[in-house]
Design a protein around this nucleic acid. Sequence first.
DNA 1: CGCATTGTTGACAAAGTTCAATTTGCGTGG
DNA 2: CCACGCAAATTGAACTTTGTCAACAATGCG
Lengths: 226, 226
Amino acid sequence: MKSSTEPERVVQSEFFAGVTERDKRLILRAAKYRKIDAKSVLFQGGTTALHLFLLCSGGAKYYRMTRQGGELLLRWLVPGDIFGIGAFVKEPVSYIGSAQATEDCGFYVWAHSTLRELAGIHPQISDNALRITLAYLATFIERHASSLTITAEQRLAHTLLQLGHQAGRSHSLGAEVAITNEELGSLADVSQFTTCRLLSRWKKQGAIAKLRGRVIIQSPEKLLVD
Amino acid sequence: MKSSTEPERVVQSEFFAGVTERDKRLILRAAKYRKIDAKSVLFQGGTTALHLFLLCSGGAKYYRMTRQGGELLLRWLVPGDIFGIGAFVKEPVSYIGSAQATEDCGFYVWAHSTLRELAGIHPQISDNALRITLAYLATFIERHASSLTITAEQRLAHTLLQLGHQAGRSHSLGAEVAITNEELGSLADVSQFTTCRLLSRWKKQGAIAKLRGRVIIQSPEKLLVD
DNA sequence: CGCATTGTTGACAAAGTTCAATTTGCGTGG
DNA sequence: CCACGCAAATTGAACTTTGTCAACAATGCG
């Protein structure tokens, strides 16, 4: 398990791929640094994307409301992730989803106009934005395909393992992920009830440990069923 | 129903949004024009994206193979659509899916290196590529959400109506879409059997007419159930 | 300590999928 | 031009994985 620190994840962000250290500093200096509390909403889906965000510390969820009032999680944001990519284009489009902090967060923000200037000077970041968006698209297509072809159990296991990699904090017993059953289930497209049942079984088998609002992955190999 | 001709759809492509007529011509001149027969495969998903395509005439499908050997349709490509957007980034990534002509096609192709030069000269097309990719992402997220929240019938109706708009050819009885039940079902995430049953019902109700390999939408309003 | 949030469990329902068997339509080649 | 053969469409019946609902328990924050 590669356990990089949060500041490391920021400078190693895909957003800065191929950018010199000097330019990174210039780009970051053009941003504003902000802190928000857990549960704060950064923006609502459907509103105009006027800002690009780079998460530095903490965690957030990217989600959409369903017609029935539930929330469908689109992505579990971790330090180094950018979101609000719609702010990159000349005529801003809408945010696709809403973003809400799941923990206290620190992040950089660029306003649309600032970003356009930067993109003119450092075309590489435009390139990176497109590459990241394509990766988001590929991830989502994979997720959709999974929901049609594999079982709830396989999906949940994959999702949990991936979260362990991305968002896992090192812990004496394994990788700890701060997420509720319901959120985890939503990310895997599994109901909270099925999620609960599967987690219980894995706990009984010693693969994971459960605390309220967090999962500790003890034996990842026990989750691989493929 | 806006029934634009195929050449119109090409020059009005989102890919050229905000580009002067003069520059459009320069960009198109840098491409090669190619023709292929129905059923030809343009590229396979997973291979390196070395070319960007702009469909001019005919039709194609963008799809992924599932582990079980079926094909999951990702998008029904129509004249004016670009695909192979991975060829836009500096270090090319993989095609997310495969593309296959469903009819005889004409299209423009740009090689990666050519495209990079053009993007340097006309930054607007990079911007357009990002905007289009974001739109693809939004569409896909919407589709995924639909598959979790609305019924097969509603999904199929939406998909069919949208296809009528995008890919509908004017016909004495209504808009004609050249697609099989199985393909239509795959686009809506509905099995071919359910698709067949729903289409039969709609036919009985006079909403559509069916021919082998094509659907004619006679009364779109009869499909709106919301 | 109290209360909201999160988690747990069982019984039940149902929308679609799957499978198998046919039928129909259409291009093609003799 | 007709007959052949494949691809597409049809239909019925049985099945099954998950989701839904309701009621309750436990956790931990303030």
